[in-house]
């Protein structure tokens, strides 16, 4: 598709993704996990990527972080601050990952070494990437733990990851991700493994840190409620494709894609009456191996037209930066 500008401000984009495609070559056949994803993200803004299992949201994040396995074929361009990051070759250039671009995973233990003390792990980031001295790094680690709201940070430096609760571990991971002063933080389901009372604190913390440091953030989640009010822009993915991409406000109030609308309406509401009949979406999300050139949501879609089953609708910008991929968008016939 054409390089449509995404709904970010007038500033040039920090991150620009064009026609990103990821295909996994597996013994059971090729699996197209991400297809034609394009978006821009401006400095200091948060993009929420929302999708269910198999939507390609996590694969997109891993492609940005260069974390895909060797049997994945990646197409398209990823430009960060004017550099084509897929062309980075030398080890020194590759320091870009982990310094300017860092990631927080769903399971904090993915990023933590279970047999190393917290303090050492954070300090190691600083020493390896920024070449700080041992003493400098420890002092900086203490500051970071304080900043991410860990109580008794001096004691925590000496502890191992298993001695910490899930919420504290995720705070440590955030501290590590921030250690080198990244310009873009990718958070992949950062709170899914956490309890609801902890989840809100972590999301608020990420938001505060982003604002304070002028970072950009990509917040990936399956829960529309998580990005509501937190992300500037929201991109809804399904079956490896972008369904809708808009500024947060219009996406929640004037959504154009039937999937976005169905997803919002199917979730039980905390302020609804007991036993309120839910509005289900028929069927199930597709396995990536079942995808084709048609719209991936077509089999479950109430507004499906004949064309949906033949080819996937292109992602069209309505002129205001609100992009959606649907032959029969909502609100088209009404107003």
């Amino acid at each position: 598709m054409s390089a449509t500008p995404s709904p970010s401000g007038p500033v040039g984009p920090l991150l620009s993704v064009r026609d990103l495609g990821v295909t996994f070559r597996t013994p059971d056949g090729d699996v197209r996990a991400v297809d034609g994803v394009s978006f821009d993200l401006a400095e200091g803004r948060t993009l929420g990527i929302v999708g269910e299992s198999g939507s390609g949201k996590s694969v997109t994040a891993k492609a940005l972080m260069n974390l895909l396995p060797s049997y994945a074929d990646v197409e398209g361009t990823i430009t960060f601050d004017g550099r084509d990051v897929r062309a980075l070759a030398t080890a020194r250039e590759r320091h870009f990952w982990g310094v300017e671009l860092t990631m927080v995973f769903q399971d904090p233990m993915t990023s933590l070494n279970p047999v190393k003390r917290i303090g050492e792990q954070i300090a190691e980031c600083l020493r390896v990437h920024l070449g700080r001295s041992r003493r400098d790094a420890s002092a900086a680690a203490l500051d970071l733990l304080e900043r991410v709201g860990i109580p008794e940070p001096r004691k925590r430096l000496r502890q191992y990851p298993h001695e910490l609760s899930g919420g504290l571990r995720q705070r440590v991971v955030i501290a590590m991700a921030l250690a080198c002063g990244p310009r873009l933080l990718i958070a992949d389901e950062p709170t899914t493994a956490l309890d609801v009372t902890v989840q809100k604190h972590i999301l608020d913390l990420l938001d505060d840190l982003r604002r304070e440091r002028g970072m950009s953030m990509v917040l990936i989640t399956h829960d529309l409620g998580v990005v509501k009010g937190r992300a500037d822009d929201v991109m809804v993915m399904y079956g490896g494709r972008t369904m809708e991409h808009a500024a947060s406000g219009p996406l929640f109030t004037a959504m154009r894609h039937p999937y976005t609308s169905a997803l919002l309406e199917t979730i039980p509401r905390i302020d609804a009456a007991a036993h309120a009949r839910l509005v289900p979406i028929a069927g199930r999300p597709p396995n990536p191996s079942e995808l084709g050139p048609w719209c991936p949501f077509a089999p479950r879609c109430g507004s499906r037209v004949e064309a949906c089953t033949v080819e996937a609708p292109p992602l069209v910008d309505d002129g205001t930066g609100h992009r959606s991929a649907c032959f029969a968008p909502l609100g088209a016939g009404e107003a």
Partner: peptide
């Protein structure tokens, strides 16, 4: 009836 590949996907559904 729909396209062959698409039908296959409905089966997969």
């Amino acid at each position: 009836s729909v396209q062959g590949g698409y039908e296959a996907m409905l089966g997969g559904l």
